[in-house]
Simulated assay, not measured.
Amino acid sequence: MKKAILLLSILFLTASYSQEIKQIPQITVNGEGKVKVIPDQATIVVTVETKGNNAKDVKKENDQKMEAVLRFIKKMNLDPADYKTQRVSLNPQYDYEKKKHSYNATQTLEILLKDLSKYDELMDGLVDEGINRIDNVTFQSSKLAQHQSEARKLAIEEAKMKAEDYVSVLGQKIGRAMTISDNSQPFYPQPMYMAVKSMEMSDTKAPRETLAVGEINITANVTVSFILE
């Protein structure tokens, strides 16, 4: 009997405690922080593509062009860790009208360019050496982690400001934060699919400008619950 009474007492206290927790006045708000950044790097994906009727000849020609491309990249003094072969393929193509086989060979390079002032020189050289496909160019920041941290702080500040605005009308104040949820989506730089076209200039020595870098947005989103005082 004593055990039963003790058990009922514990259940009653637990229920009372849970009810008390639920009755704590609070406000829940969302906050967003956004940092606009001028990119200082670009990831460039380019391809050498060759076609022909003989698989061996097509692959040989493709390899020779890629060798020339890699020699040029080395002359640009890029860090070997900043460029890599992304994929290699040799595929048969069948022409149903002519009833003949042909072959298509591709090699794709991914290049991290850490100095955007070299962009035009790099792209011109790549095309001259055999690159015939620019798959995409993605602009990014070398200080992404720092900017993400700043965006998170701005998100918290906005959430606090919202909460203060709401409760000020009621003559109350916000207390400490009870919960903080990070709702931010992973940041993936958006690729720019480009066909680079330079303007004709009367003065061939004039600097070329084929790149409009613009800005990228780094955002953070949070949900915060504050106690009301």
Rank of each mutant, 00 (worst) to 15 (best):
D182M: 11
L78E: 06
A159D: 05
G175R: 06
K98M: 14
Q93F: 09
F139W: 01
V29S: 08
L116H: 06
Q41H: 04
I131M: 00
E200A: 08
A42L: 07
T108N: 02
N217V: 06
I216Y: 06
P186R: 02
E129V: 07
Y119F: 14
I44S: 01
E97G: 13
A212V: 15
K74A: 11
A42P: 01
T219H: 13
G125I: 03
K205F: 12
V213I: 15
T14K: 04
A195N: 14
L112S: 12
Y94M: 03
T43M: 09
A159R: 00
P186Y: 05
F12L: 13
S9M: 08
F72H: 03
G33F: 04
Q107C: 07
L211K: 10
S202R: 09
A195M: 04
K36C: 11
A55C: 05
E20N: 13
Q146C: 03
T210I: 14
I27C: 03
E200D: 14
R152L: 13
V37E: 06
T47P: 03
A220M: 10
D165N: 15
Y119G: 14
V224Q: 00
V45A: 07
D40P: 10
S89G: 01
K84N: 02
K160R: 14
A206R: 13
K3E: 10
F72K: 00
T50I: 04
I5C: 06
K100Y: 11
K173Q: 12
T28I: 13
L13P: 02
G31W: 10
E209K: 12
A105M: 08
S18V: 13
Q23T: 12
M161L: 13
A163C: 00
V46Q: 00
N183W: 12
S225E: 03
L112G: 07
V196Q: 05
V196W: 05
T106M: 14
M123H: 07
I10Q: 06
L126R: 01
L228W: 02
L170G: 03
R176D: 10
G31Q: 14
K75S: 15
V88T: 15
K118P: 03
R208H: 12
P189I: 08
I21V: 08
P92C: 13
L7Y: 11
